[in-house]
Design a protein around this nucleic acid. Structure first.
Length: 424
RNA sequence: GGAGAGGUGGCUGAGUGGUCGAAAGCGCUCCCCUGCUAAGGGAGUAUACCCCUUAACGGGGUAUCGAGGGUUCGAAUCCCUCCCUCUCCGCCA
């Protein structure tokens, strides 16, 4: 959610930002400003009437105390009518407020000036590449490799739950656990506080990070108890401090959390969803930063560099994309995607996305800091995956497979796995 | 799941229809005093929004006493729904 004052003062900049993000309905900005104008004058009118009503009510109280019942009754007759006026105005105020809110929620965040303007993923900028994408054609895609060995069981997953809910068996389960431990340990060393979070969240939290109203179709629901299964740890972690005012010296705050993530992924199909490429449930270690507004872009760079360092230590070739305006998403001001090379599939797979949300999320959840002069100020939030497991696993399997079908375990994971090779 | 108690400002805690945005204490900030220290005195100390004003300060108003609705001229106080916490019972990893 953008600051209305900012929109009021920079309507053209906001409209241009919308166009750049592929949101062509820039009329909502005008509608918003119009509704906002009406809302503000209605606030003024309503407040005046309420003020009058309050004053009169106090007077009645005084008169009653003095036993002047008849005088009091005159005023009561008057304020009874006033009350109808107020209720009418309050109704209009309510609907204006709602309209204003809804319009406001339709306006995306404004991209940073360093972000390339573009429409599709083809316009993303390759920011960095690391390692050699291996193009030897003997390498199998991971699903052939491990399903043959019974390490990953999609069929039984489909039987027990449904498509996209695989079982990880034996060494594969251990590999998952090794990665989780490795990622969490690294994040702790980097200064992130590890937290464990609820896997269900309520509606307020889903709204706080922007899953509602924009992307609610991505989440599984528990309607009986009004919960959503988290699509990412970002939701509970960022909402941890919702509606709080933080001391400035607490900032920056870094959190890391491991969670499963559940996504409905409605409409996905084809080669994109083979094997571990796209699942309904997957594991991820998430990184969240809550920072001073002036530091947000520096923090984004260090977040990106940290996520990249994980791939380098795992010895997985990757590239970092600076996402263009059209491909970066509604809530971000700037976003990097990290993609690993899948030699078995001969394609890049996204394993992390590091985003700066500016004040967009924090405003929605009223997450503020106390400034030196005592004022409050909306803080800035960032997050990134560090990392999402399935595609990292896919890359590890494909890159480290040997001609005999065995898989070498990356050195940094060996202490967690207790072995240097996965054999059939 | 059953029965009961309760949710008030940074904290403790008073307040059962009128002058209560809310006593008191603690904490915190600033000032004064005290030749250190200890103690003492005074002032201030919630959040959001609207309006006026400003370079900055400031002033006025509205809303908020778990959340949402209702009764009333007037609600922290009465009624309804929901959420949460605590105690006992039941169940259970």
């Amino acid at each position: 959610m953008l600051d209305v004052t900012f929109i009021r003062e920079n309507p053209e900049e906001v409209k241009q930002a919308m166009r750049n993000k592929g949101e062509d309905n820039v009329e909502v900005v005008n509608e918003l400003l119009n509704v906002d104008e009406q809302w503000r004058s209605m606030v003024e009118e309503t407040d005046k009437l309420r003020s009058e009503s309050n004053t009169k009510a106090k007077k009645i109280g005084q008169l009653m105390g003095q036993g002047k019942k008849e005088e009091a009754q005159d005023i009561i007759d008057y304020t009874s009518k006033l009350k109808e006026d107020i209720q009418e105005k309050e109704d209009r105020l309510r609907s204006l407020k709602k309209a204003r809110e809804e319009l406001l929620l339709q306006i995306p965040n404004v991209p940073h000036k360093s972000v390339p303007v573009g429409k599709t993923e083809d316009d993303n900028e390759v920011f960095k590449t690391w390692g050699e994408p291996n193009e030897e054609d003997w390498r199998k895609p991971h699903w052939e490799l491990v399903e043959e060995q019974g390490l990953l069981d999609f069929e039984r997953g489909a039987k027990v739950t449904g498509a996209g809910f695989p079982f990880y068996v034996g060494a594969m389960a251990k590999l998952q656990r090794a990665l989780i431990n490795y990622f969490l340990n690294k994040a702790s060393e980097e200064g992130y506080t590890e937290i464990q979070v609820p896997y269900f969240v309520n509606e307020d939290s889903a709204r706080g990070t922007g899953q509602i109203p924009d992307k609610e179709d991505m989440m599984y629901e528990v309607p009986r108890d009004d919960f959503f299964l988290i699509p990412t740890a970002e939701v509970p972690v960022t909402n941890f401090h919702r509606d709080e005012i933080l001391d400035s010296d607490e900032l920056p705050i870094y959190y890391t959390a491991y969670t499963p993530c559940w996504r409905r992924e409605a409409g996905s199909y084809g080669k994109d969803v083979r094997g571990l490429n796209r699942l309904h449930q997957f594991d991820k270690v998430e990184l969240v930063k809550i920072v001073h507004p002036d530091m947000a872009y520096d923090e984004l760079e260090s977040l990106r560099e940290y996520a990249e360092s994980l791939l380098e230590e795992l010895n997985i070739p990757y590239r970092t994309l600076l996402m263009c305006t059209g491909d970066m998403g509604f809530t971000q001001t700037k976003k990097y995607d990290l993609e690993v090379w899948s030699p078995g599939q001969q394609r890049w797979l996204e394993v992390s996305s590091c985003s700066n949300f500016g004040s967009f999320q924090a405003r929605r959840m009223m997450l503020r800091r106390r400034k030196e002069n005592g004022d409050t100020e909306i803080v800035h939030t960032l997050n990134g995956s560090g990392l999402a497991l399935p595609r990292v696993v896919a890359a590890i399997l494909e890159i480290n497979q040997q001609q005999d079908g065995s898989i070498k375990v990356p050195e940094v994971l060996q202490p967690f796995m207790g072995t240097d090779v996965i054999k059939p």
